[in-house]
Amino acid sequence: MAFQMGEETRQVQATWDVTTYNYKVDGRGIKLLADGMKDKKILGIRCHNCGTVYVPGPPFCRKCYIPIDEIAEVKDSGEVVSFAVEMADVRGNPLDEVRVSGMIKLDGSDTFINGRIQVDDWHDVHIGMRVKAVWVPEPQGNLSDIDHFEPI
């Protein structure tokens, strides 16, 4: 005989409130990146030991386990490592307009950043595709200074 669930119990409400925390986050790498964008520069950190270039730069190299702080500039062009075509929101409702977000390896960097890829037809996007950044007319020194990426 199949299991039958019993009667519903009483339901009560309680919260777990993440706003009660005073988080400390190391924002140096992201600040370096954002600040540089005012001059249309993309800045990361290079590990002086293994040469890995991280964008944004972390305070230490994951592989070598040493503190790192050598600033490295990378190009605003790169290669699509992977991408996704967003068609619905988190609740599953279709979006009015599909949009392509890409995982992009900028030239000179060993890590990936995410960015929107602007194309007329998303079927044209493919892994390995070359793209470059399209900057806003007046960069403000924040992560929205690159409006999107477009195919080269």
Partner: peptide
Amino acid sequence: HGMDLLGGRGMGGMGG
């Protein structure tokens, strides 16, 4: 730092 988390534009999105 000005990231559009939902990925509408710029270097946005938590990925995917």
